[in-house]
């Protein structure tokens, strides 16, 4: 039983780390600020969620588990709102211009 839980933890945390890697690769490869923000907000949110999920069987008490979930929820709130704030700060003229060209088929 504990072996299965340990395996679950390893799998889940590794998968979470993979999503953090994906977010970072996106940050480096995506073409402009806005697309990079997409990569960070979405991939890191799932990555942190998986790491929290993987750690849940390892904490001794329900309180500590709920604490981990609270950390995830607060990070979710911060990611969703701060991502929008940064996106709103991108000068619209500049980014829209570059996208209008990019978005035409």
């Amino acid at each position: 039983m504990s072996l299965a839980l340990d395996l679950f933890t390893i799998m889940s945390v590794a998968l979470g780390a993979l999503f953090f890697l994906a977010g970072t690769v996106g940050l480096l490869r995506f073409p402009d600020t806005l697309t990079r923000l997409h990569a960070l907000t979405k991939a890191d949110n799932l990555g942190l969620g998986l790491i929290v999920l993987g750690l849940l069987p390892q904490v001794g008490s329900v309180v500590a588990g709920l604490g981990l979930i609270a950390v995830w929820l607060l990070a979710l709130l911060a990611g969703a709102t701060v991502g929008q704030l940064l996106a709103g700060a991108v000068p619209p003229s500049e980014s829209r211009q570059s996208h209008r060209e990019g978005s035409r088929p």
Partner: peptide
């Protein structure tokens, strides 16, 4: 949806052709 979003980003970020069609 947020799980799908993470996979979606991972797929696009790791794809060598970088399949994006950004816009407003």
């Amino acid at each position: 949806k947020s799980i799908v979003a993470g996979f979606d980003i991972a797929r696009r970020a790791f794809d060598p052709r970088l399949p994006l069609r950004p816009g407003y």
